[in-house]
């Protein structure tokens, strides 16, 4: 399969994403530029982390209007797979490809740490290589990762299984202590209702080799490969 990783002005994790996909996953992955409109027939578009357009106004608000995002929105509407990590998740919410929004961490602090998320639904292209309830150790590094959605929308999302990963404690249970940023329902990542768009705050691309402190992130990439096999 073919992957495309978008670079916006201010993207930080585009190179790490390409490294994870090419060098570790041995995939055909190419960089895509924010001014391009051509997605070059990729099967999965990845929006990486960073501070696109300086995160001015709101995180992801400006990136949403870049030329490539028009193509990404059309691609997603046709059912194409889109993965957004951290700032990429924020962009997907701003582009209305995912429900809800991401706001300032409850602590007001930028958080950089390794934590545990639980896989909540394995019947999706992004999680099908994981076990139900599997715990993944992944790093987060963000200042605005508090997930918010209107209560009724959140209920529908939970009912449909759109919450794919949730922050949990060492026992695998969601708890206030284990919720790093104050996200509603301890949400770390959500999919759209068609399950072809997935955004998460933790960074799978930073957890792809034991040398990096763990390879839990491979579950996500392997799932995507498996879903298209």
């Amino acid at each position: 399969m073919k992957w495309g990783v978008v670079t916006f002005p201010g993207s930080l994790d585009d190179r790490d994403m390409l490294y994870a996909l090419r060098d570790v996953m041995e995939q055909d992955a190419q960089p895509l530029w924010h001014k391009d409109r051509d997605l070059r027939n990729v099967d999965c578009v990845v929006l990486p982390g960073g501070f696109s357009y300086g995160d001015y106004l709101r995180c992801g608000a400006m990136a949403r209007f870049s030329p490539i995002m028009e193509s990404v929105v059309n691609f997603a509407r046709r059912g194409g797979l889109v993965l957004g990590v951290c700032n990429g998740f924020q962009i997907l919410c701003e582009a209305h490809l995912l429900p809800g929004a991401l706001t300032r961490n409850r602590s007001l602090a930028f958080i950089c740490e390794r934590l545990t998320v639980r896989v909540e639904n394995v019947n999706t292209p992004f999680t099908c290589a994981a076990q139900n309830g599997e715990l993944l150790r992944l790093p987060i590094k963000h200042g605005e990762g508090l997930y918010v959605a209107p209560r009724d929308e959140l209920r529908r999302m939970e009912d449909r299984g759109q919450v794919l990963v949730r922050y949990v404690n060492q026992h695998g249970e969601p708890s206030d202590d284990a919720n790093p940023n104050g996200s509603m329902n301890s949400i770390a990542g959500v999919a759209n209702d068609r399950f072809n768009v997935f955004g998460l705050m933790p960074h799978p691309e930073h957890a792809v080799e034991p040398m990096l402190g763990g390879d839990g992130g491979l579950r996500i990439f392997r799932s995507i490969v498996q879903s298209l096999a």
């Binding site: 706001t103 300032r104 602590s107 007001l108 508090l146 104050g182």
Partner: peptide, 12 residues
């Protein structure tokens, strides 16, 4: 911020 949305800056 909408009423009901957590506003950590306002709270601080």
């Amino acid at each position: 911020p909408k009423r009901g949305v957590l506003d950590p800056q306002g709270r601080a």
